[in-house]
Design a protein around this nucleic acid. Structure first.
Length: 587
RNA sequence: GCGCCCGUAGCUCAGUUGGAUAGAGCAACGGACUUCUAAUCCGUAGGUCGUAGGUUCGAAUCCUACCGGGCGUACCA
């Protein structure tokens, strides 16, 4: 086996090593046993082993009926070691492969230089169109920390899917209809008629949110208010002009407020729907399903599906009075999206309290025989608890998203003030905003989405340890060094001068990046990337304290280290961007 | 009751989908700035991976039972 060699150098992409090593092993197996065997992917050896790849021989042991350690030894002995491998060693049942450091360095750094921010991305388009629905708030109150988790998670997943070559449609559906908004409307008519967010100097969503809380307080004194809200909902459904006009005004206020919050978070939607337009969808599908015997009509006229055979319960799909339910709409919206948007997959970013709902929904898709039924996924994420317990909008025990972002920005301004680096006035605010947002986003994304977050105000405000600021700081440091060097040489680099343990560790870690992106996207789990970036930043900081870059001595070493540092900065910056965190260049 | 999720250091979490001696951060203590950003780094200490069985060359990871916590189990959303 020969590799492409040009100018005496080996040209190999970081993602190609795995295949080459599998082939080496397979060839060696043929030589030793005469058998052709499928070799599985090499694994990553533990830190104590000085190698990039390891192959455990247990599978072969079963297949060939030999002791794993014996196989390992035999395979190594009969292996033709290519020039890019520094060593191949059998250690017990494992075969460890170590690359020639210069080959590793050239492969990784060159590819990062060539691909830039897109290093580690899949180069070819998948041809798959994926709709990701996220955020989908009720329009009766401002966004809180729970929504924040949803938005941050949704955006990160969207970016990760794009990096895997999918055509992604970020979508949301505003729940602008129903009893919740009517409650706020009743409160407005009773207690705030004629007032506007402007007269209170408030954002529209906060203004309406206060009315919603007000309704709940007043209702305790005057329970008849609830009936008034229900009456208003009936008037709304009938299309009463006056009610509709008020509703339009108030939902517009809320949506304006949302837009400001979304802009600040960085949430973007390509496909926006309103429940007021979609809540009647799905009824024809259900009526059609009755004709085909998928659903059953009960004596009172309500329509049901029996899912007990599938380990679920019976579920109502249409009320006895013919009106729709939450699931009716979801059914109709999904069918419409697959039909009109030409999508191949749909992902719903919705909290874990709705796991059952989506199991039922997807099962109904299957019962209806939709070809896309198995291409729907529910990305469920854990709840966010406060030290006081669960957040409740009506009781005001929430962490408001706008307030949170303000607090984080102010915190970082304070730390910037104490820092030894002085940032020019005209950039200070935007950097503080980026650090504040980065802190809270990273705090959310570093957790596995499945897990509940017990929001710890102190930890979330922290800028040390595994935090967004730590990673941003690493990036800012590198950029600062590059600014001082005022050059990064991109060709004819003496990669063989990079052989310090910290340099090898960094290069090995950079080598893992494409795989991290791939698995984070496949599992819809940005915490994989979050953890990886923290580790990368940590490794760089260790390198940085132990070695000089600009005073490295020889020009060759300075240029090689600048190239390495620049490659790290590119990956940190690209990774943070995928997480929706801004990689600042000074702080 | 039934279903799903979680249980790893004092606290908050990782753990490459079953692989080598279980790792970080925070908090505590002790060190390192005349040197490229100290929002940094180094060291010390901390473990019956909820419990008990099972599966196999090998288990924090898989299967079973139990214990503890959470969320569901609406003609609510």
């Amino acid at each position: 086996m020969r590799l492409m060699v040009s100018n005496g150098r080996i040209e190999m992409r970081p993602t190609e090593w795995n295949q080459q090593i599998r082939k080496l092993i397979a060839d060696s197996v043929i030589r030793v046993t005469g058998r052709s065997v499928e070799i599985s992917e090499p694994v990553q050896p533990p830190d104590t082993v000085n190698a990039e790849f390891a192959y455990p021989c247990f599978e072969l042991a079963r297949l060939l009926k030999m002791a794993p350690a014996v196989i390992a030894r035999h395979l190594v002995e009969s292996m033709t070691v290519p020039s890019w491998l520094g060593s191949v060693e059998a250690e017990g049942p494992y075969i460890n492969f170590r690359l020639v450091p210069a080959c590793l360095a050239e492969s990784v750094v060159t590819d990062i230089f060539e691909r830039g921010d897109r290093f580690g991305w899949l180069e070819t388009q998948s041809g798959r169109r994926v709709l990701v629905e996220y955020s989908s708030p009720n329009t009766n109150k401002p966004l809180h920390l729970g929504h924040f988790r949803n938005n941050v998670l949704g955006m990160a997943v969207i970016n990760l899917l794009k990096a895997q070559g999918h055509d992604v449609i970020p979508a949301t559906i505003l729940n602008d209809r129903g009893i919740h908004i009517c409650k706020a409307m009743v409160a407005y008519r009773r207690f705030a008629a004629g007032e506007t967010p402007g007269t209170h100097g408030m954002k529209g969503d906060h203004f309406v949110g206060e009315l919603y809380v007000r309704f709940d307080q007043e209702m305790r004194k005057a329970p008849e208010l609830l009936e008034e809200a229900h009456a208003m909902l009936r008037d709304w459904e009938r299309g009463d002009p006056e009610v509709r006009a008020l509703w339009r005004r108030m939902t517009a206020w809320v949506e304006e407020g949302f837009e400001a919050t979304y802009r600040r978070i960085g949430s973007v939607f390509q496909h926006v729907q309103h429940e007021s337009d979609t809540y009647l969808l799905g009824r024809e599908i259900i009526l059609g399903g009755v004709d085909r015997g998928v659903f059953e009509r009960r004596d009172d006229g309500s329509l049901w599906i029996d899912l007990t055979a599938d380990g679920l319960d019976a579920k109502a799909l249409l009320r006895s009075d013919g009106t729709s339910l939450y699931i009716t709409q979801d059914l109709g919206v999904a069918a419409e999206r697959f039909r009109h948007l030409d999508i191949d997959e749909a992902i719903y970013v919705v909290g874990s309290e709705q796991i059952y709902h989506f199991r039922v929904l997807f099962e109904i898709f299957r019962k209806l025989g939709y070809s896309w039924a198995d291409r729907c996924r529910h990305l469920s994420y854990g709840m966010v608890y406060l030290p006081e317990g669960k957040m409740k909008s009506r009781e005001g025990t929430v962490v408001d998203a706008d307030d949170l972002m303000d607090r984080m920005r102010d915190m970082s301004l304070k730390v910037m003030h104490e820092s030894k680096v002085s940032v020019p006035d005209d950039r200070r605010d935007s950097i503080a905003e980026a650090i504040g947002l980065g802190a809270i986003k990273y705090y959310i994304l570093k957790f596995n989405p499945q897990k509940d977050i017990h929001f710890d105000p102190e930890q979330s405000l922290a800028f040390d340890g595994a935090t967004g600021a730590y990673i941003q700081y690493c990036h800012a440091r590198i950029r600062s060094v590059i600014r001082k060097a005022s050059r990064v040489i991109r060709s004819n680099i003496r990669f063989d001068s990079l052989n310090a343990p910290e340099e090898i560790a960094l290069l090995r870690w950079l080598l893992r990046y494409p795989g991290v992106l791939q698995s984070a996207a496949a599992d819809l789990n940005p915490s994989r990337l979050a953890g990886y970036l923290w580790e990368l930043a940590r490794m760089f900081n260790v390198f940085y304290t132990n070695h000089r870059i600009l005073d490295a001595g020889s020009t060759e070493l300075i240029d090689a280290r600048l190239a390495l540092a620049s490659a790290v900065a590119t990956v940190v910056s690209g990774g943070l961007t995928l997480l929706g965190i801004e990689p600042v260049t000074e702080m």
